[in-house]
Amino acid sequence: MLPEGFEREILTYVSPRLTGLLRRAAEALPAPLEEIRIRQDRPLQLVYPGGDAFVAPDGRLTADPGRAVRPDHDDLQRTFQLMARGSVYAWEEEVRGGFLTLEGGHRVGLCGRAVTEAGRIRTLTQVASLNIRIAREVPGAADGLLPHLVRGGRFLSTLLISPPQAGKTTLLRDLVRQLSAGVPRLGLRGLKVGLVDERSEVAGCLRGVPQRDVGPRTDVLDGCPKAEGLMLLIRALSPEVVAADEIGRPEDATAVMEALHAGVAVLATAHGSGLADVRRRPALAELLRVGAFERAVLLSRRRGPGTVEAVLDLAREVVA
């Protein structure tokens, strides 16, 4: 199955030698394409929910890495250069952070040889691994969840708790979109949302402009550390809701408290497989103790990414 915009948003930026193969192989996948992994002199791999496959030289799928096509140095360098739109120097910050963002919000993870300076990565050279993560928007992912997070037309501060790859970013994005657009059936008017997108995963910004639908009343602070970003949004953009992905450090907790004191609702996510996991992390435990969040949502992959296991009312600890 080919994802929407695959040809224009992704294949345009891949070495022409590989495009035909990828098109054919992606079409043959049993599920939507999730990742394309291009590694120099190693088998070309496609990842989909629940499995992976290698691409044979004739574009067919194979389970045997030994029979797969192996992209060469030129494929890697050309793809990297095309993805950087022939201007690697213009994406220095992104390359240093290990990823580029394509139009459509697709993210390309980079690996190669790190050049360090005073213990920090200055840049990556000889890029030898590319991981193209296909962005998928799931509008309506939060439809079932949202009614539990709204009371009397007011959005309640919520913490989404989820193990990796359980769809927490997708859910966060859809929540942001719906809060921003407003949900008349819940009596919720459109709210001004400030989103701190430290790793450019939620809004998939390209030169500061969101490539994913995050709603009409959303301001995105791209590539900014969460704590500082939350403060900036509260100070400068008068949001009614602030959202951030993966909070957990002490300074994040301070920023969340600051938001609540300013009367701004908070929507955040955290890694973990349950409330107990979250309580083990000091900064988050403190937030839960003082009642910063009114709702906690537990996610899992049990019935595919985005399975809502439980919605907890943290004020009363009642499962909804």
Binding site: Q77, Q81, A84, G86, S87, V88, Y89, E92, V95, R122, T123, T125
Partner: peptide, 9 residues
């Protein structure tokens, strides 16, 4: 040209 970081370019 265009293939490396600013410093190198």
């Amino acid at each position: 040209l265009g293939a490396s970081d600013r410093h190198d370019q």
